[in-house]
């Protein structure tokens, strides 16, 4: 089995690892790094529960091979809060009840983070469009959309 030596940044920390060719970024994060905040909802790139930031862009971690993150910067849900301080996005999800069962929440927060990084003042349609790849079965989405708008107003 071919292995690859990869060097990458995960939530701000420089790391290196030996990975097999076929292990996905999702499995690598959850099973090797113990970063279980990134969720496995379908493993086929359809639900968005495993969304992470790869060099600032939102990707489905189930569709990326761990070998591909060599030299890259990866941010997961565990990387959003800093020094015990929540991001405005996270606080807005609490304030607006943007989470119910919570399983889709990490992926949605990451997609929303990516949106606010590239567009600090999104319209409602921008938000819906940015979240269309993240399925939620509980909330009905409106509270999530309101939370992202509110976070944008609070400076992201």
């Amino acid at each position: 089995m071919t292995t690859h030596h990869i060097t990458f940044t995960i939530n701000g920390a420089q790391e290196e690892a030996l990975v097999t060719s076929h292990i996905t970024l999702l499995a690598f994060l959850r099973e090797r790094l113990g970063l279980t905040g990134t969720k496995n909802g379908c493993a086929t790139g359809e639900c968005g529960a495993c969304t992470v930031l790869l060099d600032g862009e939102p990707v489905n971690a189930c569709l990326v091979l761990a070998a591909e993150i060599d030299g890259a910067d990866v941010i997961t849900i565990e990387g959003l809060a800093h020094d015990g301080e929540l991001e405005p996005l996270q606080q807005a999800f609490i304030d607006h009840t943007g989470t119910q069962c919570g399983f889709c929440t990490p992926g949605i927060l990451i997609s929303a983070r990516a949106l606010l990084n590239r567009n600090p003042d999104p319209t409602e349609d921008d938000i819906k469009d940015a979240l269309r790849g993240n399925l939620c079965r509980c909330t009905g989405y409106q509270r999530i959309i309101n939370a992202v708008q509110d976070a944008a107003k609070a400076g992201g």
């Binding site: 279980t36 990134t38 959003l80 929540l86 996270q90 999800f93 609490i94 009840t97 943007g98 919570g102």
Partner: peptide, 15 residues
């Protein structure tokens, strides 16, 4: 506010 909201927005909630 939901009692479980903080865990759920930080990815700390365990499933």
């Amino acid at each position: 506010k939901r009692i479980d909201a903080l865990e759920k927005v930080t990815g700390e909630a365990l499933f």
